[in-house]
Computed example of a mutant assay.
Amino acid sequence: MTPTAQGDLFPEVPSVGACRLCGAHRYNPACPYCPMRQAHHAAAGRTDLVSGESERAAALAAAVARRQRLAELQRPVRLALVGCGKSKRASAATLGELYSGSLFTAAYRHAQRTADEVFILSAFYGAASPALTPVLPGGLDYDLKLTSTRDEQEAWGHRVGAALERAFRGLTVDVTIYASRLYADAVKPFLPQSWSCSTPLDGLGLFERLSWFSSHDDR
């Protein structure tokens, strides 16, 4: 497809199938990648995936505004990747509200305070916007984990890394991962080589991690 003035602002996106960032088959306004995907579908005449000109215009405007906001930082984008948790609320409007554990709560609060953008790492979603409406297998009471098999870890890490690269293509990014070593080790090899990546919780136990967040949020 020949790039257009608008298309140059967005990463290349698939013409069919689920969003590679949030997994939605239809446009999800909470996902930063879906507006780019929706714009591609609209240009290709895929009207079954959108619901009118006003929604398409809003999606394009949101994607352009996000890109402009990040570009105007004039420094590397601070991206926080927060690992999901086992404890969940019985109901939640967004993914950021779903997880109720003390470690997730501390990590998410710290990430919101210190990062430009925050994504939640999930075995089910991959990397997802905290504003995503959770649609989960078996309802909200599920327990899907990233297994210890190397093939699954690599497949998951590749999916997450590729999706993040598309979402931030052309930008310099400093990534901080607040997640278990299993998730961090699965993601790091698939992040763009030009990005920096830190894992400040590496080697810390549960209470040490909670103490780390407490001490850093007091600054």
Rank of each mutant, 00 (worst) to 15 (best):
L191N: 09
V50A: 06
P189K: 12
F213A: 11
A167P: 02
R166D: 11
L73Y: 08
R159W: 08
A107C: 05
L146C: 11
I177W: 13
Y108F: 15
A65I: 09
L206R: 13
A42V: 15
L146P: 12
E55P: 00
L146Q: 06
A167G: 05
R181Y: 05
A63V: 14
A123H: 10
W212K: 05
A155G: 02
R66P: 10
W156E: 00
K145P: 00
G85I: 00
Q6M: 11
E53W: 07
G205Q: 12
G45S: 06
R37K: 15
D217E: 11
S211G: 03
Q74F: 00
A63G: 11
A127T: 09
G139I: 11
C22V: 13
P76F: 15
L98E: 06
P200N: 11
A5L: 12
H41D: 02
G138S: 08
S15I: 09
L103K: 13
A62Q: 08
E97F: 04
A128I: 08
G139W: 04
R46K: 10
A115D: 04
D141M: 13
F168V: 03
A59Q: 11
Q74C: 00
P35L: 12
E117T: 14
A57E: 09
A167M: 08
G126W: 06
D116C: 10
T147P: 07
S87N: 12
A80W: 12
F168H: 15
A162S: 15
P137A: 08
F124L: 09
A18Y: 03
T2F: 09
L144F: 06
G52T: 10
S54C: 04
G45W: 08
A30L: 05
P35F: 12
M1D: 10
Y33M: 15
D48T: 09
G7S: 14
W195H: 09
S102P: 03
T114D: 03
A128P: 06
E53K: 13
D116L: 13
V160A: 08
A18I: 05
E55G: 01
D174Y: 02
A92Y: 09
G85D: 15
D174W: 04
Y183V: 00
Y108T: 01
N28A: 13
A155W: 01
L164D: 01
M1R: 11
I120D: 02
P192K: 06
I120Y: 03
R56S: 02
S51P: 00
L201D: 07
D48W: 04
A186H: 02
S51F: 10
P14N: 03
G138P: 07
H216K: 09
C84K: 04
E12Y: 04
K188Q: 12
G23D: 10
T199D: 02
L98Y: 13
S194C: 04
L182E: 03
E154F: 02
A30Y: 03
R20F: 02
P3L: 13
L191W: 04
P134H: 14
C22G: 05
T149F: 13
A163S: 15
R113T: 02
A58R: 15
A184P: 01
T94H: 06
V175F: 05
A123W: 04
